[in-house]
Each structure stands twice: as structure tokens, then as C-alpha cells.
Design a protein around this nucleic acid. Structure first.
Lengths: 192, 192
DNA sequence: CATTTCGTTGACTCCGCACTCAGTGACTTT
DNA sequence: AAAGTCACTGAGTGCGGAGTCAACGAAATG
């Protein structure tokens, strides 16, 4: 049985993480602990009660994010799906977290090493599912004979390019707006 | 006729820009004016004699870089070149500035707005040359019927993806190591 | 009810940043 | 050669960041 205190503490911790997620999505990872504290309506010191350093806060946040994304991608490739359905599902997941994901991919390189590892892990899960779907397509001989990793990197490269340069394309959600175009043309590229 | 002083001043300015280029390539744009001053063996204040703010220093640096890249790309598409030759030339230019270019593409979003404009300009020059070559290929019916901008964005997306995630692929120069693979497979993707 | 525990607070310290400016001496001008 | 100019200097300033800690009071304990 949890005491009132324990419940409160966990709630505060979660609240800080959720607020940090929002702030980082809006401002990028250069946002300060001050901003987060203010937005979460807790004192500045409270953040350091729950997380020894900002780096630790970011790593915890990414761990949670990673788990969330994995949960959503789970079983995505097992239902004998079409490539098109799979790509659409992938984009749909990204749309749900678009603002944050965009910051993440364009700023990973300036994040702590540990955070980078979490990100790599995230990518490899996507890669795994992608692999399964493409292998199936290759067996059905509908896809060109091109190394798997090139196909995967082309897809992720294209999606990430639209995300990081979204200001070139639209003011709203690039993924929502270009989803069909991206999927349809990518399939045209890789099919025989 | 230039006085000794003018010559000296211009030399110092150029020296600061060159040093900043080196430091930013190595450390990213979060490198400080202190680091640059130390590396250039000038006093900290000297930087602000030549550039009113760090932002201005970065914008001047990018202007120079932009001019340099443009110079190298100039006439690249006019010689009735093959697509393969063009892509290789493009990569070769990037290899020459790889470390800096890598920092640039992964940090533009956190650079001052003015710097972003210079970057957009750079991209559009590449796009222009790319366009010419692809249009020629389309006339020769060797390339799929896919919108020009998708082809261009796929290429740049792929190259940028390898650059920003270079730590996944190699410790040295990704472009040098994966040049052939990227070019050859990209051509396979877009050809009929 | 008295005592102890502990989640929370916010004023505080320390640090490193961009940027300043009075001073200096080599160069330029007259 | 005297007077004036100006590129360069580096200690100094103000600012805003991350992280600290004595103090508080509600919750837990006996």
C-alpha cells in the first residue's frame, strides 16, 4: 500500500517529465530548467529533487518516450501487412509525436551520449519491423534488388529530411500534409 | 593602395573566420568566442572589433562558405554530364567540407534566422543544378516518372541521413566510404 | 498528542558566457 | 619629428544558466 507521500512524489515526477516533453517539443532541448519549473508550476529546486542533473532528466524522458514509441510500433509488421499500410502506420505514429520527434532528430547530436544510445535503440526497433515487411515484399518479387539497409535509410532519410526542413514545406504538420505523397512516391522508387 | 593597417586588419578578420570554421567543424556551433580567440591566437576583444556579435560572425562565415560551395558547383550541370558524374561531383564537393557541412545541416535549426536564409540559398543552388541533370535524364526516358522535388529530396535526404548519423556507419568520413554505394543504389532507385 | 520523517521551497552560490572599454603602441599623416 | 589615428588588448561587467541547502509544514509514526 502506497502512502499519500509516495503517490504525491510519483505524480510530481511524472508531471515534470510531461511538462519537459511539452517544453522541449516547443523550444528545443536548449530550454532551461527554469522554463520547465515555471511551466510545471513547481519550484526550481523540485526538479533536482527528482533528477540529479538535467542530463538525467533528458535521459529519463527519452527512456519513457522510447517505451511509448515501441509500444505503438509493436506488432506492426506481424499482421502480414502491405508495405503501404506499414509505412502509413509508421508515419501515423510519428505524427502523434511530431513536434518532439522533430526536435529529437535534429538535436540528438548535441544531447548527452546516454541519450544518443536510447535514440539508436529506437531506430533499431523501427528498422527491425521495416526489415520484416520488406523481406516479404522481396519474396513476392515486387521490390527491386537493393540492399535492405539502403531502402530503410532512404525511407528514414526522406521522412527525416521533410521533418528537419519542415519550414520549407508548410507551417503546420509536414507529415500530415505530405504523408500520401511520401508513401506513394517512395513505393514507386523501390518497386520494379 | 592599401595601407599596412588595412592589410593587417583584413588578414586578422580572415584569420578569425578561418579559425571559426575549424572550431565549429570540430566542436559544433556551441563553441564559444573564447575557444575561437584562443585557437586564433588573438585576444578575446579582437573578435568583437571585427564582428559586432557572434551571430554576425556566424552569418559572415556562412556567407563565405556559401560563396565557396557555389563556386565549386558552378558549371557542374552544364557540361552535359551523366547523372552519375554529377552525383559524384556533388559528393566530392561535400567531402571537401564534410565536418563543417555535417555540423551545419544538423544545427541549422538552432542558428540565427539570417544564417538559415543563407543555408536555404545554398540548397536551392544545388537543387537548380540537380534539376537540369534530371530533366535531361527524363527526356532520355531513363528515369521514372516521379516529381522532380521528390527525387531531389530523396537524394539529399539520403546523403544528409548518412552524414547526421555518421556515427552509426564509420569513424572516418562517411561520404568517402559510402560514396559509391550511395550513388549506385540511388540511381537504381530512380531508374526505370 | 508529541515526535519524526520527508517532499517541497526559493533565495543563494558558482560558473562561464557574450560583450565592453580605457589603455597601448605601431603606423599614418602633416 | 610631432601629432593623430586605430587595430588590438585583456581585465572587467552583467546576465542567466545549473545545481545547493536551510527551513518549512503536512504526513507518518509511536
Amino acid at each position: 500500500m502506497k502512502t499519500k507521500r509516495q503517490v504525491q512524489k510519483e505524480a510530481t515526477r511524472l508531471h515534470i517529465l510531461e511538462t519537459a516533453y511539452q517544453i522541449y517539443a516547443e523550444e528545443g532541448f536548449s530550454a532551461t530548467t527554469n522554463q520547465i519549473a515555471k511551466a510545471a508550476s513547481v519550484s526550481h529546486g523540485t526538479i533536482f529533487v527528482h533528477f540529479p542533473t538535467v542530463e538525467n532528466l533528458i535521459v529519463c524522458l527519452l527512456d519513457d518516450f522510447n517505451a511509448e514509441i515501441n509500444g505503438q510500433l509493436h506488432g506492426l509488421s506481424e499482421k502480414n501487412e502491405q508495405l503501404e499500410t506499414f509505412l502509413e502506420a509508421h508515419i501515423n505514429v510519428l505524427i502523434r509525436y511530431e513536434a518532439f520527434y522533430k526536435r529529437l532528430i535534429s538535436e540528438v547530436n548535441s544531447l548527452p551520449q546516454e541519450a544518443k544510445f536510447v535514440f539508436i535503440n529506437m531506430q533499431s526497433i523501427v528498422s527491425f519491423h521495416f526489415n520484416q515487411v520488406i523481406e516479404r515484399c522481396k519474396n513476392e518479387k515486387t521490390v527491386k534488388e537493393i540492399p535492405m539497409h539502403i531502402i530503410f535509410n532512404s525511407w528514414l532519410g526522406l521522412v527525416h529530411y521533410y521533418l528537419t526542413n519542415s519550414y520549407l514545406f508548410t507551417e503546420g504538420s509536414v507529415l500530415t500534409e505530405y504523408k500520401e505523397e511520401l508513401i506513394c512516391n517512395f513505393i514507386k522508387l523501390i518497386e520494379k
